[in-house]
């Protein structure tokens, strides 16, 4: 471990004083094994306390610190600076309103989740113990349950940018997660909800969401399976 000098450009926006976002450069010295989050903490704790950003678990599971670094959506906490060299360009996720600096308004993102009825719907009486679900049945949804709702996918989705009504990859992935759960009886409802011009058909298989996903979930593939299910269901 050694110290290195880096240049960090951050897109700043202070709602109390700025009319619009602007870039600010920080020249700082950090450990060479630092993460992007370490860099932000260093700036915030020792150089400029007014810098605002979100972070919590710093172990890639809470989804707070998704942001754009040198053009890529990443989780700041798990991303080492050596991936980008000595010049960093850090900005908030695209497609969301900036509240302050790197903090964006994620309420619309979470509101979209509600629209797809994101909970197991069971028509029949519940069993005394657990539902029987085979490992093969679980396999259908296993990877999709890794989603941490960090919004990196939605922020990378060109179909989401011009259309705030589009459900977007995260909510659609959640729809997939329940439609393909062997225990769920709510598929008809949900398939009707996503069978809409602002639903699954707005996905143009651009694959940006998959590339942006820090959990490497094959989102586009699952959305394609959801499309197929919509078609099957309407036949």
């Amino acid at each position: 471990m050694a110290k290195i000098d880096i240049h960090v450009n951050i897109l700043r926006y202070q709602p109390d004083s700025d009319e619009k976002p602007h870039w600010q450069e920080f020249a700082i010295s950090v450990d060479d094994d630092s993460t992007i989050l370490d860099v932000l903490n260093e700036i915030h704790w020792r150089h400029d306390g007014t810098l605002a950003y979100r972070r919590s678990c710093r172990s890639s599971i809470c989804g707070s610190c998704a942001m754009k670094v040198n053009g890529r959506n990443v989780l700041a906490c798990e991303t080492p600076i050596h991936r980008f060299g000595r010049k960093l360009k850090i900005e908030p996720l695209s497609g969301f309103q900036i509240i302050k600096d790197l903090v964006v308004d994620l309420d619309p993102f979470f509101e979209k989740l509600r629209r797809i009825k994101p909970y197991l719907i069971v028509d029949n009486p519940l069993p005394d113990k657990e539902f029987v679900q085979t490992p093969e049945q679980l396999e259908q949804i296993g990877e999709s349950t890794l989603c941490i709702l960090c919004a990196a996918c939605s922020a990378a989705c060109p179909s989401s940018w011009p259309n705030s009504e589009y459900l977007g990859p995260a909510a659609l992935l959640k729809a997939y997660r329940f439609v393909f759960d062997s225990r769920d009886d709510g598929a008809d409802d949900r398939l009707e909800i996503v069978n809409d011009k602002n639903g699954v058909w707005r996905c143009h298989t651009i694959f940006n969401c998959m590339e942006a996903c820090p959990k490497k979930i094959k989102i586009t593939e699952y959305l394609s399976r959801l499309k197929l299910k919509v078609v099957e269901n309407s036949l």
């Binding site: 909970y119 197991l120 069971v122 519940l126 069993p127 005394d128 113990k129 657990e130 539902f131 029987v132 679900q133 085979t134 490992p135 049945q137 679980l138 949804i141 296993g142 349950t145 329940f178 759960d181 225990r183 769920d184």
Partner: peptide, 20 residues
């Protein structure tokens, strides 16, 4: 508590015969 969670949809890992 665990059965409730399962009924809410928690994707527990399974035994070969489909139990938690």
């Amino acid at each position: 508590t665990v059965y409730e969670f399962e009924h809410m949809g928690v994707p527990f890992s399974r035994t070969k015969d489909g139990r938690i």
